[in-house]
Design a protein around this nucleic acid. Structure first.
Lengths: 242, 242
DNA sequence: TGCGCATTCTGGTCTAGACCAGAATAAGTG
DNA sequence: CACTTATTCTGGTCTAGACCAGAATGCGCA
């Protein structure tokens, strides 16, 4: 970067690049889901280096203004999906209420022992197996959520034969007569790795919003344990309280 | 990094370094709030470069396993504070319930017009001023929360003469007879800049957990608007629902 | 002993390249 | 035209340094 001879407070180059791109986005000179100039073009434009350019981009990513698609480029984030985890509105309805096109892909379904966290949450017997569902959910073609769902097999016989790409809540209610009475959500910022990162088109170690949830029918009977990994720029949680 | 001659799947160097440090932390070979080896020591140890080492460190930071203290080093994160924004438990009590030592510093207090978001949320008249409080809150000496609080001046006369480092909820209740009936929380992952980043000992653009909150007395009367910037590794939200 | 100053150490920022793997596209082929 | 293949373009990872500013520390002096 050129020196400013002290006219203005000298900003680090990565901040100047960030501010420039943030400006383009705020003025809608770059529209939602539009690709940003490539890193090498930005290097050229700012007479800088890829390290510095990528620094700026990763700041914008942290803010949620842009997102990456692995080896394809950087894109302007559309508005966040507003999501109230305590409401019983399912993903499809939620997306459509906000004029978005939802999609779900069932990645895998297994009968397994499952992770200790799930077994503890569901308070299953030592020999009981869990059903694990892994699903990838998208908005307007962009993957935004990778989720692991654990269910006690005993409560949901024949589950694996059913359609598992739609609303689980509906299915549980209709076919198993489950009425969720309350749930416990834990929310934190975490990071994605390996198959989760790949599926979300992120790099290993990219930050995400993680939601762990236990759903109960009746006072103490846990029937579902979820771990959700959200592309953080895709979501804003809304928690009303009374 | 040495090559593995295909014996195991070859991991990128930054992931190997991450895994090594994550291992030390999980085995408690590095204890909470302990400083990690300096970046240059890690470069030495892994025969790598600072770029790669910092890549690994920033992944660990995203996960919340470590946090940084500006130009002092990287430290192992203590357990996250469990925080239920809908409960009326104040920061002091919350911290002490979890065996942590809380502290609050009042950064500034002003009568100002305030940002548009605050004015809209509080639905104040065009000529009315807001009181802005800026506070930094710490746990065990580590800054974890930088918050902006906006209050309509008309509802809280003489507020600026009071002690503003303690629980605002208590003060509002005691001195102004405010009874909060409900609130609206919005939670997203964002980034910190400038004075917020400085105060939290972070770099510009580091990710944070952002909570925006409107508090109401009575059905529609908003009396408080907050923006909280949490060091993300310091907090886990807990949202029970009924 | 206590204070101020110089030194050392830390992360923060940056340069100027390199090679790789996967995605997208253009070109060639049947 | 449809399909395959080669090329180009993208970000992902990495090397080997550099200089800077702020934090911590050690030392000398009062």
């Amino acid at each position: 970067m050129h020196t400013d001879a002290g006219l203005k407070k000298m900003l680090p180059a990565n901040i100047e690049i960030r501010d420039y791109l943030a400006g383009l986005i705020k003025q809608s000179r770059l529209k939602q889901n539009e690709r940003l100039p490539s890193e090498r073009e930005l290097v050229e434009q700012f007479k800088s280096t890829r390290i510095t350019v990528r620094d700026a981009l990763s700041k914008l990513e942290s803010e949620g203004l842009i997102y990456r698609s692995n080896r394809r480029g950087w894109f302007v984030s559309p508005p966040r999906l507003e999501y109230d985890p305590s409401s019983r509105v399912n993903f499809y309805l939620l997306a459509e209420q906000q004029q978005r096109t939802p999609a779900t892909e069932l990645i895998s379904q297994k009968r397994i022992k499952g992770p200790q966290a799930a077994r503890t949450a569901l308070a299953v017997a030592a020999d009981e197996k869990l059903i694990e569902l892994v699903r990838l959910r998208s908005l307007d073609g962009r993957p935004v959520l990778y989720e692991f769902i654990y269910l006690p097999e005993s409560r949901f016989p024949e589950l694996m034969k059913k359609d598992l790409e739609g609303s689980l809540t509906t299915l549980m209610q209709r076919d198993y007569n489950v009425e969720i009475t309350h749930e416990d959500n834990r929310i934190c910022v975490s990071a994605v790795y390996d198959q989760v990162a790949d599926a979300l088109s992120h790099i290993n170690g990219a930050p995400c919003l993680e939601i762990r949830r236990i759903r109960y029918e009746g006072e103490r009977k846990a029937v579902e344990f979820d771990i959700e990994h959200w592309v953080h720029s895709a979501i804003e949680l809304r928690i009303p309280s009374h």
